[in-house]
Design a protein around this nucleic acid. Structure first.
Lengths: 142, 142
DNA sequence: CTTGCCGTAACATCTTCTGTTGCAGCCAGG
DNA sequence: CCTGGCTGCAACAGAAGATGTTACGGCAAG
């Protein structure tokens, strides 16, 4: 499978909403967002649905509908986006249960889970250090 | 795709080699290793091939062939294993090029690459803090 | 030379992700 | 009240990657 691009899509969407808001555009439709991401509006709606459930964006239904940020871009970190999109952790355990007759097979899964948990905590800490405002600032610089 | 288990397989293999070595068993065949991981010997050989290219294990061909660690278990970190198995980074960029007419679409890829690079560095730092000896010790504790 | 194991290619299967279509639900505005 | 535009969601096709399996050539110790 191709690399997981959900965090990328969601971050792109949020950055675009932030820029539109700054320019005075209150709400954007999923079609307008999809035009920037260059993908299907349903993909964008799926991503925005995740972000809505996490409380990062709000949606207005009916005529004149659309999306807007639920809080300031400085208040949204990539860690929140990462958790909102529910990306799976980078490492998985064995597909098939290891041989429990073997001392390594018996005890390695909790050992690895602990190590992988520490790695994911490190990832989360690093993701929390960047906000949507940071991403947008860096984006407009180029 | 199922979660990526290459790091898990490779670490299991190395821990098993380390334990066998400590017990006086100099070399193990891929069949013996596969019996502990509970998978096909070819999977194990593929993994061991990665580790050999990275200089972490050595192989003996011909009759009486088999594998052994190329250095002490304390000297092998999960970071080295991670780099040996060539796992892809946790986040990918857009599948299709974003709309370059849009200021966000134009500049977001380098901005995200930089942020993702920092995250992967954090992962590597954390992986470097655990060695095969640590994993084996934790494994045998349960 | 025989035998056991490595190295690798080819292939089947499974899973996940992306992208697409279709349709019901909702609500501002006329 | 009704229309139109957009959301929400289910269903499905296609692509990509990973695992698992079989098969076969190559190598070296005995």
């Amino acid at each position: 499978m191709a690399a997981n691009s959900r965090l990328t899509i969601a971050t792109h969407v949020l950055a675009w909403l932030a820029l539109a808001q700054r320019r005075g555009q209150e709400v954007l439709t999923s079609d307008q967002v999809a035009a920037s991401v260059n993908t299907n509006p349903v993909i964008v709606r799926r991503s925005l649905g995740d972000l809505r459930r996490a409380g990062l964006v709000t949606v207005r239904h009916g005529a004149g509908a659309g999306w807007s940020l639920a809080r300031a871009p400085e208040e949204i970190t990539l860690r929140q986006v990462y958790e909102a999109v529910g990306a799976q952790p980078p490492f998985g355990l064995h597909h098939t249960e290891p041989n429990l007759e073997c001392p390594v097979g018996r005890g390695i899964r909790p050992a690895l889970s602990a190590a992988y948990g520490r790695v994911e905590q490190a990832m989360r800490r690093e993701l929390a250090a960047t906000s949507i405002a940071d991403v947008l600032r860096q984006t407009l610089r180029s």
